[in-house]
Write a protein that binds this DNA or RNA. Structure first.
Lengths: 250, 250
DNA sequence: TCCAAAATCAATCATAATCATTCATAAGCA
DNA sequence: TGCTTATGAATGATTATGATTGATTTTGGA
């Protein structure tokens, strides 16, 4: 069976049943599990489907809710720990840039008593920041429905009006050679811009992001301080040569 | 049964019946109690439901939402009529400024087929615009918690990047001598700025705003076209001398 | 009201399923 | 032949699951 035929089969099946199990595909196509996994990964990159544990589903029509909320729920406790740790680096009265993202979102409760001014590009963060009584500026611009992050020339320009004492960014991967990366080039550009406007930049990325490389580069490792939870010994050594790493005490 | 499938099942069931028992889910999915508990915990983290003893219910709307929703519910039908009327002035392909506010919010469904590009200063409008697949830029800036409107120098500056074919503003009062007014001076400044960048400006204000004067002036009556529902005869005459008025046909 | 039984709960553990990654091989193509 | 791409098997890691435990909450009768 041709690769293309399998892809067609998967998509057609998905279109009818909305959901598909890897084992079922293996049984009906005769291909190996590895191959089917590769198929699904590829189709996911084309945004034709969304992978879930054990199979795949049609991409949520309400992407904002389904996939972002999914991610937010995952490892919530670890995210909170990392967020609290990150917030501990903030001084009273700092001007803070807070990147859009589920981990940075968890930092908000810990900003309450710091008398900070926050600038963010995250739509979902604004309301929560306001509820906590934190003075907040939103960059504005064009919104990415998937992440609720603002991007584009307008966003970049907005940022130029500010200087930050401290800047917190999310990243999908960090790698000794390729630096910090994230899937969307436009979001990467915003992150980079924010970083250059800050006296100190911290990147929040848990251990699952170690050695991962995503499509768009944000910046090199040495441009920021990495905050993470735990990390395998030998990887840590390589990374530590390039950047300053701080690990949450467990 | 995939984890994702169970989640879908639970949410769908909840959406119909408003309430769900753990035992019922166990019986109908065949999964263990532990698993279902974990499902519910996760869905609660996503704010898709609220756990109660023995099961789960649909999440209760928080206070912030309810008070805004209250306001929105008031005269909802009239607002929708006025909004639909306003949208009828939009040409295909127009660049549109949409002011923050409950009436302008109701215009969104009618923008769908107009292939417009929208710029707005209203936080609550962005998500709805995105759901309707409308290309949207948010001005950003400092948010006014009560109205969800962005204001300040940042907002004003953002606006300077655009020119609008058509501009829709809300107002709390219109008056022959004092013009269009609104309670917040900063919001008034944004409205005025948007108006000067537009070829045509429409103000949406129902009859209850007639002859009312609020603290901050947006602009004189002759700077825009007033859209309203009905208006007492003698007032209308006075207003009409100063501005172009269009009344919804009832 | 109070108490005890029943139901439900969170937390933990071991197991099973699924996962990404790597490597060696096979197939396609110049 | 030499090169690229696709495949399948093996691995160790990650995630999901079900059973068990003892704690907590609800229920219903005295």
């Amino acid at each position: 069976m041709l690769t293309h035929e399998r892809h067609e089969y998967i998509l057609k099946y998905l279109d009818e049943k909305k959901t598909i199990k890897i084992q079922d595909i293996v049984d009906s196509t005769g291909a190996s599990e590895s191959t089917i996994r590769r198929d699904l990964t590829e189709l996911e990159n084309m945004q034709k489907l969304e992978r879930v544990f054990g199979g795949a589903v049609l991409p949520g029509r309400n992407l904002q809710e389904s996939s972002v909320a999914d991610k937010a729920a995952r490892n919530l406790q670890e995210k909170k720990r990392l967020a609290k740790f990150a917030a501990s680096f903030i001084q009273k009265g700092d001007s803070v840039f807070l990147d859009a993202g589920t981990t940075t979102y968890q930092m908000i409760p810990y900003l309450k008593d710091k008398e900070v001014v926050v600038v963010t590009n995250g739509l979902t963060l604004v309301e929560s920041l306001n509820e906590h009584g934190i003075t907040t500026y939103l960059t504005g611009g064009l919104m990415k429905p998937l992440t609720g992050a603002f991007v584009g020339a307008q966003t970049i320009q907005s940022l130029g009006n500010y200087r930050f004492d401290i800047c917190f960014l999310g990243a999908n991967g960090f790698h000794a050679e390729y630096g910090y990366t994230t899937p969307d080039p436009e979001e990467a550009a915003v992150k980079k811009r924010a970083s250059t406007l800050a006296r100190k930049t911290y990147i929040l990325a848990d251990h699952s992001k170690a050695n991962k490389v995503s499509f768009a580069k944000i910046m090199d490792l040495d441009q920021g301080i990495l905050l993470t939870d735990q990390i395998a010994g030998n990887i840590l050594e390589v990374i530590e040569k390039k950047t300053n790493v701080k690990v949450v005490s467990s």
